[in-house]
Computed example of a mutant assay.
Amino acid sequence: MNLIEYIELVFTDYTLRTITLGTAILGAICGMLGSFAVLRKQSLLGDAISHAALPGIAIAFLIIGTKNSSVFLLGALISGLVGTFWIRGIINKTHLKSDTALGLILSLFFGFGMLLLTYIQKKPNANQAGLESYLFGQAATLLESDVWLMAIVTAISLIILLLFWKELKLLLFDTDYTKTLGFNIKFLDILITTFIVIAIILGLQTVGVVLMSAMLLAPAAAARQWTNNLSIMVILAAIFGAASGVIGTAISASHNNLSTGPVIVLAAGVLVAFSFIFSPSRGLLFREIRFRKNRNDLQLHKTLSFMYNIAKTHEDITHPHAIKILNNFQGFTKKSLQQLEDKDFVQIKGNMWSMTESGYQNASNLYDQLLKENNE
C-alpha cells in the first residue's frame, strides 16, 4: 500500500479512519502532558501509572464479569490514581527518593495485576475479558466512541493548561517562588498529575501497559531538543506525538502482522533519535560542528599569537622567517597557516612567511584581550 492509497483508505475505511484519528489524538495529548512530566523530572511516572492501572482493569472485569471498555478504563483510572497518590505519600512521608517510590509502586501494582490476570484465566468466562490487549495494546479495538472520548479529554486538558498556564509554568521552574506568590502548589501538582494519569489510561487500549510510558515521554523528549520555550515545546511535543501515531498506524496498516502500538512507539523513537542528532541547539551533529569550529578557531588564535610574539620582537613586522621556526611550535599546522593567509593575516612566499598589518593588529588586540582577562 502506497501513501496515496493509504490516504484514500483513511477517508473511506471506517476502521482505519478511527484508528488513525485515535492514535493521532492520543499522541497529541500524551506529548502535550508528557512535556510537564519530562520537565518535572518524573519520567518514570508514566511507567508507574500505566503498570499501576493493570489491577484496576482486572478488578473491573471480576466485578462485571464481561468485557466493557468504559468500565475497564474507569477501573484503570481509579487504580492509577491510587498508585499515583501512594507514590506521593511515600515521597512526602518517608525518606525514600522519588525513583525508589516509583519503582516500588510499579512492581507491586504490576505484580498484583499479573496475579489477578492469572486468576481470571482460570475462570470459565476468561475468553470474554480480552485483557491481554491492555498489556501490549490493540489499536484495532478502538471504536468511534473511544476517539470522541480522547478528543473531549484532549480539549479539556488544553483548556485547563490555558487557564492555569502561568501557575503551571511557575510550578515547573520555581516551586518555592510559586508558593510565596500565594498559589496552592499542592492543588496544581494534583491537577497536572491527574491529567497525566487520564492521558495514560486513555492510551492503554491502543499502546498497552508495557509501552505507554514511551508514548508519554518520547514526543516531549524530542521536542525538548528543539527549543527552550515551554509553550513551543508543548506544541512541538503534541505535533510529534500526533505524527508518531499517524506514521505508526500507516506502517502497521501497510504491512501484515505488525502491531500498531509497538510501531507507533518505534516511530516516536525515530523522531527522538532524529532530534538528538539534528536539532540545531542540542543536536549531536551541530554540537560536533561547533566543537570543531571552536577548536579550529583556538588553533588559529594560538598560531597567530605565536607569530605575534615573534613579529613584535622585530622592528619590521614583514620580516620573513624560515618555516622551520614554526615547526618548533606544537600548535602549528599548515592548514592553520593557510587559513590565516586566506584571512589576509599572513603572507606566504615559498617556505617563507610574514605577518600583514591586519594580522599584526588582530593579534595585538587578541593578546591585549587575553592579558586583560588574565588580570581580572
Rank of each mutant, 00 (worst) to 15 (best):
K169G: 01
M1I: 03
V265A: 06
E315Y: 06
E144C: 00
I159A: 15
T194L: 15
L216C: 01
T318L: 03
A129H: 08
A48C: 10
T20H: 04
V246H: 04
N375Q: 15
H321C: 02
I64W: 08
L16D: 05
Q361W: 08
G283P: 00
D189I: 09
R282G: 11
L104T: 15
I190K: 13
S79A: 14
G56H: 02
Y6N: 07
L39A: 01
S254Q: 06
I196G: 04
D176G: 00
L74Q: 07
E357F: 10
F195P: 02
G65F: 12
D342M: 02
N92I: 05
T260H: 11
H321G: 03
S259G: 14
A28R: 06
I251R: 11
G331T: 09
Q128H: 14
L172F: 04
L26K: 08
L371R: 08
G208K: 03
L73P: 05
I264L: 08
I152D: 03
H51Y: 12
K41A: 02
A28C: 04
F72A: 01
S98Q: 15
H51T: 04
S358L: 13
A267C: 06
Q42G: 07
E288L: 14
M352D: 08
T15W: 10
N256T: 10
G22L: 01
V71K: 07
G75I: 01
G34S: 09
N365R: 12
A311T: 08
T227Q: 03
L26P: 00
K334W: 09
R17C: 10
L131D: 07
I49N: 03
T94E: 00
S69C: 00
A24L: 13
L96H: 04
Y134A: 05
M32Y: 07
F112I: 15
W226F: 10
L33S: 07
F36M: 07
T175I: 01
G331N: 05
P262S: 14
M114C: 11
Y360T: 04
T154W: 03
G83P: 02
A155R: 03
W165G: 06
L158E: 05
I87Q: 06
G75E: 07
G83V: 05
D176N: 12
A268V: 14
L371K: 14
V147I: 10
S98W: 13
D297E: 07
V210W: 10
I78M: 09
R295W: 05
Y119K: 12
N328Q: 09
K123P: 00
I64N: 05
S133A: 05
T206Q: 15
E132T: 05
L108Q: 04
K186D: 14
A199S: 10
V270M: 10
L216Q: 02
P219G: 00
T356D: 03
N309T: 12
